[in-house]
């Protein structure tokens, strides 16, 4: 790890000030993405601004048609939140699939989406649920937030404070793990809203998380796995690597999308029975 100067921010304004004032400053929340990169000397910020001691950034608050989750809420907290489990069970499940228990105790929602790793899970949920990313400056729709590999619409001294997730009628996330890293090799989040269906894919896109309009249209007609039969995603623009070629990823997207739709329907059937 290269050396850096450490700053502990007492509040958001101070953190913003530090980001503006110090050269090559980077925020650290849980550090579960940043620290591994710094250890491998792939990231070398000159200044590190720790958000860990700022109070009030991890609240989970239900609203009528959405849930607001603080940026510093850990994956563990989101996974175990009664509010999220009740209102958006697919999101609670997704949070429980990120990394493993020790990582979930440290990793945060804000850290994950600010980092925008192309194999991260949360970006798929944000995109499919039509989330709004709330920052110190503004509210950014998820569709405009994820701009490329490890790239977001965040400005240099802008800090995510919360994410507002609209509730969905039905939703589910399916993840096919990379056998080595256990990150998503393909992750598919489907969400049926009152007015539309959104399907977001992580792990597979050469430029990060993306939506599949053809799947969305078909599911809008009929929200069932059968509606996706015969539909495929082009391998162009998908990642190919040692573990999965682009055509294999394209194939998995189809399989997982059907399974996600089935799981979303099954969840609702179950809750209807209760």
């Amino acid at each position: 790890m290269y050396n850096f100067i450490y700053h502990r921010a007492a509040g958001l304004r101070q953190a913003q000030h530090m980001l503006g004032e110090f050269d090559d400053a980077k925020l650290i929340a849980g550090g579960q993405s940043l620290l591994p990169m710094m250890k491998l000397r792939l990231a070398a910020p000159a200044n590190l601004v720790d958000l860990g001691k700022i109070a009030g950034l991890s609240d989970i608050e239900p609203d009528v048609r959405s849930i607001s989750i603080g940026a510093m809420a850990t994956h563990f907290e989101v996974h175990n939140s009664a509010v999220v489990q009740e209102a958006l069970p697919a999101l609670a499940e997704l949070a429980g699939m990120i990394g493993e228990p020790a990582v979930r105790h440290r990793g945060t929602l804000g850290g994950s989406i600010a980092h925008n790793d192309p194999t991260a899970d949360y970006p798929a949920a944000c995109l499919a649920l039509g989330a709004t990313i709330i920052t110190t400056e503004r509210r950014i729709p998820a569709d405009a937030f994820f701009t490329g590999l490890f790239e977001t619409a965040l400005m240099p001294d802008e800090i995510i404070t919360a994410v507002s997730f609209p509730l969905a009628e039905k939703a589910a996330y399916q993840k096919f793990r990379n056998p080595a890293s256990r990150y998503a090799m393909v992750g598919v989040f489907v969400a049926k809203h009152a007015s539309d269906v959104r399907v977001a894919i992580t792990g597979a896109g050469a430029s990060g998380v993306f939506r599949v309009p053809a799947f969305e249209e078909a599911l809008q007609g009929r929200f069932s796995p059968e509606a996706l039969e015969g539909l495929t995603v082009s391998a162009d623009g998908l990642t190919g690597d040692l573990h999965a070629s682009a055509p294999y990823r394209a194939h998995l997207i189809g399989v997982l999308a059907r399974r996600a739709v089935a799981a979303a329907n099954e969840r609702n059937d179950r809750s209807d029975e209760l």
Binding site: L40, N178, P179, A180, S181, Y183, L242, H243
Partner: peptide, 10 residues
């Protein structure tokens, strides 16, 4: 290519 445990599966 498999230079770490993120690429070499155990």
């Amino acid at each position: 290519v498999t230079g770490s445990l993120t690429d070499y599966a155990l």
